[in-house]
C-alpha cells in the first residue's frame, strides 16, 4: 500500500508493520446503512457492543474521510450506481464489508428490484452472514478485517482474487443457520 516502491529492508519492514498497525487501529466507517442491517450496525456502535473500543465509533458521513464501507442492507437497482459513486469517492486504502445476506447475495430477495450481491458493484473484502447479523457476527467480521490488515493477508487475498476484494466469509455467531453454499446455475457471462 504505497510502500512497495521503497527497497525492502529491516527498517522498512518495521515501518510497514507500523503503518498497518495504525491503519487497523483507526478505521473510520462510512455510513452506508441501507435497510434493516443498519439497525444492527447502530447496535454495534452503541454502548453494549461498543465500536469505540476499536476507534470506529465515528461513522463519517463524507466518503472522503472514510476508510471502510459497511454495506448494511439491500442494494436496489436504483441505488447501485450511487453506491459505486460513494465507493469511488473514498480514498485509498479502503475496504468493504458486505453485511448481511442481502448485501452478500441478494438474500431472500431474488427479484427485479435488487442487485444480487453488492460484489457485483464493488469488490468485497469480508462477507458477514445473517439476516440480520447480530453485533457479535458483525464485530467478528470487523475484527477479521483488522487482523487481515495487520498481517497484510488482505492484500495477498486481493491479489489472488478475481474481482479485487479479499472475499473472506466469517462464521455466523448469532445462532442463525450458516449460509448454504450456492450452486449457481447461471451460465458465466450472464
Amino acid at each position: 500500500m504505497g510502500l512497495e516502491a521503497i527497497p525492502h529492508t529491516f527498517l522498512t519492514g518495521r515501518l510497514e508493520d507500523l503503518v498497518r498497525w495504525a491503519r487497523r487501529r483507526s478505521v473510520f466507517p462510512a455510513t452506508f446503512g441501507l435497510a434493516c442491517c443498519a439497525l444492527e450496525m447502530m447496535a454495534t456502535g452503541a454502548a453494549h457492543y461498543d465500536l469505540a473500543r476499536w476507534g470506529m465509533e465515528v461513522f463519517r458521513a463524507s466518503p472522503r474521510q472514510a476508510d471502510l464501507m459497511i454495506v448494511a442492507g439491500r442494494v436496489s437497482q436504483k441505488m447501485a450506481p450511487v453506491l459505486r459513486q460513494v465507493y469511488d469517492q473514498m480514498v485509498e486504502p479502503k475496504w468493504v464489508i458486505s453485511m448481511g445476506v442481502c448485501a452478500s447475495t441478494g438474500g431472500m430477495f431474488n427479484n427485479y428490484a435488487l442487485v444480487q450481491g453488492v460484489d457485483q458493484v464493488v469488490p468485497v473484502d469480508v462477507y458477514v452472514p445473517g439476516c440480520p447479523p447480530g453485533p457479535e457476527t458483525l464485530l467478528s467480521g470487523i475484527l477479521t478485517l483488522h487482523e487481515m490488515i495487520r498481517t497484510d493477508e488482505l492484500m495477498a487475498r486481493r491479489r489472488a482474487s478475481a474481482h479485487g476484494g479479499a472475499g473472506v466469509h466469517v462464521p455466523q455467531l448469532d445462532g442463525q443457520p450458516e449460509p448454504a453454499r450456492p450452486t449457481v446455475t447461471v451460465p458465466s457471462g450472464a
Binding site: G106, N110, N111, A180, R181, P182, T183, V184, T185
Partner: peptide
C-alpha cells in the same frame, strides 16, 4: 406477464 427476473440459484441444503 412480466418475467420473474430471478437468477436461478440452487442451494444444496434447501
Amino acid at each position: 406477464d412480466a418475467p420473474p427476473a430471478r437468477i436461478p440459484v440452487t442451494f444444496k441444503a434447501a
